[in-house]
Write a protein that binds this DNA or RNA. Sequence first.
RNA 1: CGGGGUGUGGCUCAGCUUGGUAGAGCGCCUGGUUUGGGACCAGGAUGCCGCAGGUUCAAAUCCUGUCACCCCGACCA
Length: 479
Amino acid sequence: MADQKKLVEEITSMKEDFAQWYTDVVKKAELIDYASVKGCMVIKPAGYALWENIQKELDKRFKETGVENVYMPLFIPESLLQREKDHVEGFAPEVAWVTHGGLEPLTERLCVRPTSETLFCDFYKDEVHSYRDLPKLYNQWCSVVRWEKTTRPFLRSREFLWQEGHTVHATAEDAQERTIKMLNIYADFCEQVLAIPVIKGRKTDKEKFAGAEATYTIEALMHDGQALQSGTSHNFGDGFAKAFGIQYTDKDNTMKFCHQTSWGMSTRIIGGIIMVHGDDSGLKLPPRIAPVQAVVIPIQQKKEGVMDCAASLADRLKAAGVRAKLDGSDKSPGFKFAEQEMRGIPVRIEIGPKDMEAGKCVVVRRDNGEKIDVALDALEKKIPELLDAIQNNMFEMALKHREEHTYKATEYAEFCDIIENRPGFVKAMWCGDRACEDKIKDDTRATSRCMPFEQEQLSDKCICCGKPANKMVYWGRAY
RNA sequence: CGGGGUGUGGCUCAGCUUGGUAGAGCGCCUGGUUUGGGACCAGGAUGCCGCAGGUUCAAAUCCUGUCACCCCGACCA
């Protein structure tokens, strides 16, 4: 339980340099390698397994609400991308273009999808004819490309993996309901599976998605006090439907425009897991998402029976539904301890001759370093319990951190001071004017994170201009 | 796109000022001894010194250009 000592010299401490700490953890936990194109990364087995678990959990939740998976093309003809004005203006600066096919220049250049609204819309316009065709609830798992100027693994890469759901509905009400439903799925997933507490709310017009009528978001607070937009759900209204001509004949035999939504979560959330839970010894994975939940490390593994015993423990745990692994490599135990810590494996089980004699093993928690003896015959019961306890503790720790770094401000000077000196969320009232958001950003580099569903009336004046205000906004510097 | 930094075995870097034909540590391979917090001994393999020009008898080193990556800012999930 004692203070977690810094055990790994190669990882820069968070306090010293958070950005470097992040990069060190990403590399040391072997989540990725840099690739030969700037902003592109090789996602290694440890990183990809994490993504696969995220996919598995989200996909299950999507399908429970009737969503089906599809796959759209990688390329979007320029003319198609330009169909919706706000949308193209939002994305044009960062799309990658294909100009040649083989040796011949193309008659129309193709953009590598930065997101697939236009492709889905182009598809839906021919797919939807009648109210009987609605709703369409499609999702795709794919990668998209955005030519970012500066890049960081997971947080901002030029190609990233994500899912994008695109739905079409008959009415505005149905679209709104779906938008919120998906936001709730993201929030639930973050909190229950990733142990990341999130604030649910709506984006201001300045921050909303290009082409959307309304954007909803879940916002999480990282360990350094910066915010991370962790998932978004957009209500498009009938804007895209009008731009693309997606209409249906209703029961009353009149033509009506559809209402649409889209929603996405990306590999960026892996950056969130790292920055919410990690520490100076490396990654710290919540058990429910950890590809390996428990690693068994034999001590004096060449001694008679030790390796067999360790292997049988791992097998028994697997049979009990724990994602367990044996580390039977011939590294020294200390090396293995450090390595499993860097990788964020929630539980470590040490078994050596002394333990075997006593009929127990030593179990160490990654979340708090606590070391306990567990009777060998209690393993199947004890480890799952422990994993649950770790999951809950990690959520509580993250929640506590967020609460301790969430402030309220009613005066502008106070607001600026908090942003500058106490990293975190600041709750403050806002009049609704874009000008105030712009000024706050200029003055403090903080942006509006969201207008939370859970509102509080902190005062009746805008934090910035002093005019009447009835919206409370979470502000903060963000990734 | 601005500002800074870096390119030398798989990794981290030294060597460059003052040109002489490439080094260290880690890692890797073999064998042995070890094993409860990054073990040790012995032996071994690995380099178009980012790339392209130039200067020179001779370039990792000097000059010119170029490319890439990293970090910090403005924009984005």
